Simulated assay, not measured.
Amino acid sequence: MAASDAKIGRRFEGKVAIVTASTQGIGLAIAERLGLEGAAVVISSRKQKNVDEAAEKLRAKGIEVLGLVCHVSNEQQRKSLIDKTVQKYGKIDVVVSNAAANPSVDPILETQGSVLDKLWEINVKASILLLQDAAPHLQKGSSIVFISSIAGYQPQASMAMYGVTKTALLGLTKALATEMAPNTRVNCVAPGFVPTHFADFLVKSDTIRNSMEESTLLKRLGTTEDMAAATAFLASDDASYITGETLVVAGGIPSRL
C-alpha cells in the first residue's frame, strides 16, 4: 500500500464491511485498506477463482476475510452475499458498492436497448437491490459508500452512457442519505483516472497516459490506494458528520465549483 502499514489506524476494529467487485483494482484496494484497519471484510466478484486468489492475498496480510461469488445483477447471489455475511458475523457496518460495467463505446443514441439495460442494471439498480437486502442488518452508525466516477460530472464521448449511470449514483447518494438518516450515513467517491484492468485504456499508449496526466493539476494518474484512502475516510467515524456528499478524488480535474 502507498501508506505504510505503520501509518494506518484501526478505525474499523470490530466492524464488518462488504465490498462488491473487490477481487482486483479499486475494489480490492478498498477491501485491503478496511481490513488493515481492523474490519472483517467480505469480498466478492463473479468468478470463484478470482475470489479465492484475492482472499488468499488479503489473509496473507493478516486480514479477516470472507470470499463469496456474487454477480451483482443475480438476485440469488446478492441475497446469498448478505445472508452468508450475517450468518458468519451477525451484522453489517459498512457497504461499499463498487461493481460497474461499461459494455459499449457507442454514442448514446446508437446504444442498443440491451446494453442500456445492462448499464442500468449493474451500475445503478443492483446497488439499490443489494442495499434493500442489507438494510435490516445495518448497525446504528453504519456507512454506505458508492463508487461513482469523474465521468459522472462530465461524461466523455467514448463512455457517455456509463458516465450518465455514474451521475445517477450522485443523486442516489443524496436520496438515500435522506432516507437512511440518522442511523446510516451514505456518501460517494468519484475517482478520476486510475489505471486498472477495468480502465486499461489509460495505459495502453504513452500518448494517452501523458495526456491524461497533463489533464490533472497534480500531473499524475490516481492509484487504487488513493481511492481506498478516500473510501475508508468516508466509511469511518472520522466522517461521522458527513452524509449525502460526493468526494471527488481526481487530482484536480474539474468537477464543479
Score class of each variant (00 low, 15 high):
K118D: 07
K15Q: 11
A230P: 01
L130E: 01
A101M: 11
K57M: 06
K61I: 02
K57Q: 05
G222K: 02
L66M: 13
G14T: 11
G14Y: 04
G35F: 03
S45R: 07
M161Y: 07
G9M: 05
D133F: 02
P182Q: 09
W120D: 04
N102L: 00
L28Q: 08
L130R: 01
V249L: 00
A126R: 00
F198L: 05
L217R: 15
L170P: 02
G141F: 09
A160F: 01
I8C: 07
Y153I: 04
V72K: 00
L58A: 11
D117F: 08
V16D: 04
A134H: 04
V105K: 07
R220K: 11
G244E: 02
G244S: 01
S127H: 11
L119R: 05
L247I: 07
P103T: 03
S215F: 07
V16G: 04
I144E: 05
N187H: 10
F233L: 13
W120N: 12
A228Q: 03
Q139C: 03
E214P: 06
V72C: 00
T178W: 04
H197Q: 10
K84E: 03
A60Y: 08
E213P: 02
E245Y: 09
G25H: 05
K79R: 14
M1C: 09
V96G: 01
S236E: 14
P155S: 06
S148C: 09
A157M: 13
N123G: 06
T223D: 07
A190S: 12
A60W: 06
I43L: 07
Q87Y: 11
A29N: 04
R78F: 02
A168P: 15
A160P: 08
D206K: 15
T216H: 08
I122N: 01
A190W: 15
D83C: 00
N98E: 04
P195L: 04
I8H: 00
K140P: 12
S44G: 06
L81Q: 07
T165I: 15
M159R: 11
T231K: 04
K166I: 06
K49Y: 05
G38F: 05
S149N: 08
S142D: 00
C70M: 02
D133T: 01
Y241W: 11
V69S: 02
K174N: 09
S80A: 12
R78Q: 11
A99P: 00
K15H: 05
R10L: 08
C188P: 03
S158F: 15
